[in-house]
């Protein structure tokens, strides 16, 4: 299990289990994260077994495919296959600002300290860290900057975030 953090610290007891093709590995009444294709085809079935549903998006997924199902979801995870793939930032921004998603938005995959600030500002609120990452340093990185020029999607979240305005 990767370490999970939010802006306030390490999160223990994460209830979410990611479905990876083996339904037997998922106990009844669990909180389950489904890949997009699985969610689209079998959300109805899973709804009966699971306590709550989340969906896992890859960077190339279109948000239109879940736009009408957001009320069925409690969590959206976006995968970063490599940290230099920046599509997830725009997906997160769109989910928060365009689609009005206010539930948990989790960054998963190749997630390291040096992305945390950018991810936070793009609207992510939890981070499943790569195994070698240190939780305390990653938590601290959410505050790398106290001032910022851009209206980020973090303004929709619980965390106050940096002070945002133009310089003058």
């Amino acid at each position: 299990m990767p370490k999970l953090i939010d802006h306030s610290g390490e999160r223990t007891g994460d209830p979410w289990i990611t479905y990876a093709g083996d339904a037997h590995a998922i106990p009844a009444g669990a909180c389950v994260i489904l890949p997009l294709t699985e969610f689209r085809e079998f959300a109805g079935t899973w709804k009966n077994h699971a306590k709550a549903l989340g969906v896992l998006l890859s960077p190339s997924d279109s948000l239109e495919l879940i736009a009408n199902d957001l009320d069925k979801l409690r969590l959206i995870a976006i995968d970063f296959p490599v940290f230099t793939d920046g599509r997830g930032y725009s997906l997160a921004h769109a989910l928060r600002s365009r689609y009005g998603w206010r539930g948990e938005l989790r960054a998963v995959g190749d997630i390291q300290q040096d992305q945390i600030y950018l991810l936070t500002r793009s609207g992510f609120d939890t981070f499943a860290l790569r195994d070698d990452q240190r939780a305390n340093e990653c938590v601290a990185a959410t505050d790398d900057f106290t001032h910022a020029y851009q209206w980020g999607a973090d303004r929709f979240g619980a965390r106050p975030g940096p002070q945002v305005r133009y310089g003058a």
């Binding site: 230099t84 930032y89 950018l118 500002r121 020029y149 851009q150």
Partner: peptide, 17 residues
């Protein structure tokens, strides 16, 4: 200058293609 400020450490566009 406005563009400089807006583009500086823009969180969404730090890992463009």
């Amino acid at each position: 200058e406005i563009i400089r400020q807006w583009s500086t450490i823009h969180p969404e566009f730090a890992h463009l293609p």
